[in-house]
Simulated scan of single mutants.
Amino acid sequence: MMRFSHLSPSAIIWMSPVSFGAVARPESLGERAEKDRRWPAMLRKLKGLRKLGRRSIRIVDADCGAGDLLIHAAQRARELGFVAVEGRGVDADPQLVNAAKKTAARQPDAAIGLVFELGDQREAMREEAQFPADLLLCSSSESEARDFARIARAAGDTVLCARTGGRNP
């Protein structure tokens, strides 16, 4: 388990949302994913687990949107040497879930298993609490933060949560 020196292992790392400006050319999935403020912490977690000798990883994105971040993280995990990558993405928008499924279906690596489901992120995190993910991605508003933190801590060893409005809790 990767430990951040300033946080306990079960702490949630809250991050401001990324702002997307006008883009002159279409961006690749990786470029979109790496604009997410959670990306650097995700990459540190992946590298840290590999350095510890981990060969497999489980990532859950409880508010996955079109799946860019989860798919890119899975691909990067393989590049880092993970031999098995399991990813679960959940979102409340059926169009985004369908887009994520289509993108994931184009990924040729059999060592990457990605599942995208229609659902509520709170319920997904409650389901994950029995067998917590190595890395949990979520998003929350300031008003939801306290209740959200309790649920998220149980669902993942490391939690990276994008703040959707207001200040950090």
Score class of each variant (00 low, 15 high):
E79I: 01
E79F: 01
L80P: 15
L80M: 05
L80H: 10
G81L: 02
G81Q: 08
F82E: 02
F82T: 04
V83S: 15
V83L: 10
V83G: 13
V83M: 12
A84P: 00
A84E: 14
V85E: 03
V85D: 02
E86L: 10
E86K: 12
G87P: 04
R88S: 07
R88K: 14
G89M: 01
G89V: 07
V90L: 11
V90Y: 11
V90W: 12
D91S: 07
D91M: 13
D91R: 11
D91Y: 09
A92M: 14
A92P: 12
D93G: 13
D93I: 11
D93C: 13
P94R: 00
P94D: 07
Q95N: 09
Q95P: 00
L96T: 07
L96C: 04
V97L: 04
V97N: 00
V97H: 04
N98C: 02
N98A: 13
A99K: 13
A99H: 09
A99S: 14
A100K: 11
A100N: 08
A100P: 07
A100L: 08
K101S: 06
K101H: 05
K102P: 00
R106A: 12
R106W: 01
R106K: 13
R106F: 03
Q107Y: 00
Q107T: 08
P108M: 01
P108L: 06
P108G: 11
P108F: 05
D109V: 03
D109A: 08
D109K: 02
A110N: 13
A110Y: 01
A110K: 15
A110Q: 14
A111W: 07
G113R: 15
G113T: 06
L114I: 01
L114A: 10
L114G: 05
L114Q: 10
L114N: 06
F116C: 13
F116Q: 07
E117N: 13
E117T: 08
E117R: 14
L118A: 08
L118S: 07
G119L: 15
D120G: 09
D120K: 12
Q121M: 13
R122P: 00
R122H: 03
R122D: 09
E123N: 10
E123V: 07
E123P: 01
A124H: 05
A124E: 06
R126C: 08
R126P: 11
E127R: 13
E127D: 11
E127A: 12
E127C: 04
E128T: 10
E128L: 12
A129V: 06
A129P: 02
